[in-house]
Simulated assay, not measured.
Amino acid sequence: MRRTRPRRRFHTDRIVLARRARYLRVVGCGPDRLDPAIRRRLSHGALANTTPWDCGTAACGICRDPTTAGQRRRRAERSWRDDWGMERW
């Protein structure tokens, strides 16, 4: 299926609505009682790219999972080097 502009927009809207609903469910209040700064974080453009709990720092250990791709790759390389008896560099 071709990735047309309306189809991309539909899926982006679907993801944004799910992220906004999850944030409101966790916080436990309605969208009308939110602070204006939080409303900006829950805007369509902000939620289309990141989750509401993401601070935007790539190496943040609080809002990012410590087992992200870079560490996972290093761990995998260390494991196969140990299995083959090769030195670590």
Rank of each mutant, 00 (worst) to 15 (best):
M1T: 11
M1S: 13
M1Q: 03
M1R: 08
R2I: 10
R2N: 08
R3P: 09
T4Q: 03
R5A: 13
R5G: 00
P6Y: 00
R7H: 07
R8S: 12
R9K: 13
F10Q: 13
F10K: 09
H11S: 00
H11M: 01
T12N: 12
D13G: 12
R14I: 02
R14N: 15
I15R: 08
I15T: 14
I15F: 02
V16M: 01
V16Y: 06
V16E: 07
L17Q: 13
A18Q: 09
R20H: 06
A21H: 03
A21Q: 07
A21R: 11
R22S: 01
R22C: 07
Y23T: 00
R25A: 15
R25C: 05
V26F: 02
V26W: 09
V27E: 07
V27L: 01
C29A: 09
C29N: 00
G30W: 03
P31I: 10
P31E: 12
R33G: 04
P36F: 05
P36W: 05
A37H: 05
I38G: 02
I38E: 11
I38L: 15
R39M: 06
R40E: 14
R40T: 08
R41D: 10
R41T: 06
L42K: 00
L42N: 03
H44Q: 00
H44L: 00
G45H: 03
G45P: 06
A46K: 04
A46H: 10
L47Q: 02
L47P: 05
L47D: 01
L47F: 02
L47I: 02
A48D: 02
A48K: 08
N49A: 15
T51W: 04
D54H: 13
D54S: 01
D54N: 12
C55N: 05
A58S: 13
A58V: 12
A58W: 12
A59Q: 03
A59F: 05
A59Y: 09
C60A: 06
C60R: 09
G61D: 11
G61T: 12
G61F: 05
I62K: 13
C63S: 04
R64I: 04
R64A: 00
D65P: 03
P66A: 11
T67L: 15
T68V: 06
G70F: 11
G70K: 14
G70P: 09
Q71K: 15
R72M: 12
R72F: 01
R72K: 15
R72P: 01
R72W: 11
R74H: 10
R75F: 04
S79I: 12
R81S: 08
D82A: 15
D82R: 15
D83N: 13
D83V: 13
D83L: 15
W84L: 14
W84H: 11
G85Q: 06
M86V: 08
M86H: 13
E87Q: 12
R88L: 14
R88E: 12
R88C: 06
W89R: 15
